[in-house]
Nucleic acid binder design. Sequence first.
DNA 1: GCAAATATAATAGTAACACTATCATTTTTG
DNA 2: CAAAAATGATAGTGTTACTATTATATTTGC
Lengths: 237, 237
Amino acid sequence: MIVLLLYLQVMNQILGNISINVNQKIYLKDPESSDLGKKILSESINMIDNIGFDEFTFRKLAIVISSTEASIYRYFENKHKLLLYLTSWYWAWMEYKLVFAITNIDCPRERLLRSIKLVTEKIQQDGNIPHINEIKLSNILISESAKAYMTKSVGNENKIGAFSGYKKLVQRISDLIIEINPTYKYPHMLVSTIIEGSHHQHFFSDHLPRLTDVVEGEDAIPAFYTQLTLQAIDNVQ
Amino acid sequence: MIVLLLYLQVMNQILGNISINVNQKIYLKDPESSDLGKKILSESINMIDNIGFDEFTFRKLAIVISSTEASIYRYFENKHKLLLYLTSWYWAWMEYKLVFAITNIDCPRERLLRSIKLVTEKIQQDGNIPHINEIKLSNILISESAKAYMTKSVGNENKIGAFSGYKKLVQRISDLIIEINPTYKYPHMLVSTIIEGSHHQHFFSDHLPRLTDVVEGEDAIPAFYTQLTLQAIDNVQ
DNA sequence: GCAAATATAATAGTAACACTATCATTTTTG
DNA sequence: CAAAAATGATAGTGTTACTATTATATTTGC
């Protein structure tokens, strides 16, 4: 427990000096560059977490940050682009956490295990980036991220690099798998199945429990995906 | 090949005499009960497949079926309920296909393999229900089904039974798993991971191929999930 | 075959949403 | 302190998501 707290403190201190970079083509004006921009980020995270992305509007957001719709539109073309920003931020942040979690770990299997744990377990601890609540942001990823990429505009948004953070993370973990088993045929499928799947399972455990096997007090979701992964890569047929 | 065609003919003949039942609480008036209702179903499937659910509106639908918004509202409260109807219909149809596919197959493992194949492979063949194009409907399930249940109203809709078809299908396949390995801890998680995962992989292979490992001409998606399942249930630790 | 019941069409209207435009005011910067 | 940039205030347009009303078909029971 003390080790965990120390680790989080170290993380937070380092995070205090770094910043997560999001593809410039997603926004009109960098929200990290001003107080208003940061308020847009922090309050949109609160609001989307509270009322859901469908009910969220720039008008409602303008009221709670005591600003105007027109001002918000100077940062983001529309609410969909704002969601893309939040998801990109999240994946860049996860990649950072991943690199941090496996640095100096020599054993490839241990590196993979730590990676799976990181992407499948629920975010419980907020970092120290004042305008981003990572717990709420991770809830948004669980409930709303499909709305970010399951659109007819996915091709155009992919072209401007809106999903590169997600793809980089998948690639990193796929590389770990290939390091352990160079003959494994489906590393990307396995990793994207784990990431998307664990989001679904978190959602199901809260709202459609018949679709899951989550037991109170157990870490069933990371345990299930860890087991699945090890069985997949250890048994080459 | 001839066996496949015969099978499909038999299927279609039987489907000609049955009808898929959708929970009555999802609609205001049964769309199967009138010509207008059937037109609403068939054209909404075409339109959602074409322009996506976000761009789809009752006004646009009214124009192409030469009717009015008000008339459509007599069948469905709103477009979200229509999407729930289509997804419920799909899961009921899949359950029917599942029962048909494993009837008279004695070997439990073979029953499971056929089930996995059914839920993970792409629908290629349209049935003979004139107002439902199953290929287009399955595309809608792939691209839009998350919008049906990842909402703030999921709890209420779950109460009225809007997802019971999906849950029944998951339960059926979970039962097959438990029949083969009664000690397996995560049957529901495994099945919902397979179903949601294969939808994602079909979408990714078309739009975000870096997240998958689909190879032209190979049935990578069913192969991957079949392998994953067998490894999961055969290796009890 | 006709009256009654029901379904659909036609039309209109409201509140909210998704923006865009313009201009005034405040804040920042050189 | 002047110029530039950011923000606020206000207004306006077209669309969406409905609801209401009344007229016209169509179906059904007798």
